[in-house]
Design a protein around this nucleic acid. Sequence first.
DNA 1: TTTTGAAATGAAAGCGCTTTCCCAATACCA
DNA 2: TGGTATTGGGAAAGCGCTTTCATTTCAAAA
Lengths: 360, 360
Amino acid sequence: MYNLEVGKGFPILSKKGREGEHMSVTIDDIAKEARVSTATVSRVINGSKAVSPELTRRVLEVIERNRFKPNSFARGLATDKSSIIGVIVADISNPVISTTIKGINHVAQQKGYTVMVCESDGNGDKEQMLLERLEEQKASGVILAGMNVDHNRIQQMLRMDFPIVMVTQQSSDGKITINTVIHDNINAIRDAVVFLHTSGHRRIGFICGPENDYSSGIKRLEGFRTSMEELQLEVPESYIMFGDFSYESGRECMRRIFEENAIMPTAVLACSDLMAAGAVSGAASLGLSVPQDLSIMGFDDTDLARYLNPALSTVRIPYFEEGEKAAEELFSLMESGEKATGKLVYVPHKVIRRFSVRKI
Amino acid sequence: MYNLEVGKGFPILSKKGREGEHMSVTIDDIAKEARVSTATVSRVINGSKAVSPELTRRVLEVIERNRFKPNSFARGLATDKSSIIGVIVADISNPVISTTIKGINHVAQQKGYTVMVCESDGNGDKEQMLLERLEEQKASGVILAGMNVDHNRIQQMLRMDFPIVMVTQQSSDGKITINTVIHDNINAIRDAVVFLHTSGHRRIGFICGPENDYSSGIKRLEGFRTSMEELQLEVPESYIMFGDFSYESGRECMRRIFEENAIMPTAVLACSDLMAAGAVSGAASLGLSVPQDLSIMGFDDTDLARYLNPALSTVRIPYFEEGEKAAEELFSLMESGEKATGKLVYVPHKVIRRFSVRKI
DNA sequence: TTTTGAAATGAAAGCGCTTTCCCAATACCA
DNA sequence: TGGTATTGGGAAAGCGCTTTCATTTCAAAA
């Protein structure tokens, strides 16, 4: 007979609930078994208030024995917070991005957070949808990895419930309102140019990212122009080509550099290893062998740089660390309760010498 | 004056709640504004029971106007279900895996589910931890992508609350208890061997996956041995080397094949594009050029196969589709309410001819 | 006309936590 | 010693949904 009149006169359901359903152990079960209130159990779990050693021990023992896991929905409902952090990326199979994600994952996991990776395919509507979904899930924070984001979008994001951090890419209005973790594109390219210069190259071509890509594309171009100027090296406009970071565009840019110049550069610097790979292939198909006839340098130091023959000289960007720092930045934002402080964190790069560049 | 005595005599909080906190619009607000009960609103949202057209319209209008999004915690708490599906992988930056994830994402997103990608680093404890966390989050289903899983683990998984599907890899006990979506490793290798045979090769070396990898490693080896036998081709044991799918191991295996054989094979088939790339590099360092002195064939058809010079002949495995099918499989399991039916789904492969294999 | 049944709606319980509010017990101070 | 902080712990409200159950309405069957 379960129809005991209790409380406001409603029958208590037995622990089984509606029959057949798998009911998991709840905080009430623990409280009952440890002969304390649910408040105490909650306090023990969260360390939110002092509980005597005696009770703490008793509660922990019961929790342990029953493998009790707090229901994250109930907890979320009560606190209005989840332990999820969202990561929005355009393309998960881009090695640069997946390495960044690994870094994010690494620190999130340590902090007991779970990472939700969402792919936008570079599609604004999808991105919007994902942000909304993350808001629904009450994500505690969001990281945008390698996403091109414009001013409007940023304003809109700042209205969301969670703090946001950008990584691998900075906002396209040039202003840093959202906290950002990034490598120094200008100086990284400068160092690459200096490396080529030190290797004896004076005529240097440049395969750039897209013109509408403020962060990676434009900054790197800026780095190229200023450092060439500093070294007092001429740069015919036909030495500079705009690609889109793809292998095919690298190939195509190489072809155009060849076609549009009577005097070829002795070295070509590409803005990604992938475009560099395309450039190597393009050079080969033009009868130029690398590095004998032409030196080619990449950027990123993805695994591909090592796999190619000749292995690519490149600039190493520590994307894993970039991801880690981004996550750390996000956590400190979450702790401080601020949505954005406009902080900008740089991560160091390093020129890697391999065989695609020769001394002349 | 908010201290109206209502219900059991407790004051109603104003919508603002504790001051300063951002309160979002709830189902109650909608109900009030549309002059219906929350039950009706819920029914409209979920289409769970007939609601008159008149009310439906009214409710939808109010929902729309207020941009109401049901709180997923409250919903989860009430239904004990989330719209999250978990994906556990060993390494997110493995191109094969990230492509599979893209496929999963693609169908999950269409169904209104969010994918949570978790990385285990191939670490059993971490994997366990992730499964528990997914259980906590009440994931509706889980996909294991490219994970080596043994019998015990499978038994344990079948005890979890959600259905599980394996993709890209099958369980190491050879029995299919968990639903699995995979390519036909044996026949894919057979087709590669036949391709090499057709190209005139008779002495064929094999760079295999790890010996302890039942699905990809052992199956492919089996495919190699049986198809070589069918073609009545000899295979000295020193033609077969075990790698670990890495570039370096491909290089090393190539070196050993060279050192341990007086008569070299004319072609080497590697079990992944990455190992094939290593093999090409290893061959080069031994003074053998590909494909003039030695043909090398890969497996997977990752982008790398196209980027290499010479571009790799390989076997294309449609990992994106594999991911899609896995997700479809999971959804059908979720709908039927079963945890596993032991269904095995194959995905078709295709030999891709490029330049690393020459006709002799 | 009365009875039955189906359909539409609302009231409110209940999901499993956290946290406020309160009380009791103990420690501290003059 | 009395009075005041301080501390530990319990009762129960409340988070925002879903769903059961009861009620009302209305058409069809008797």
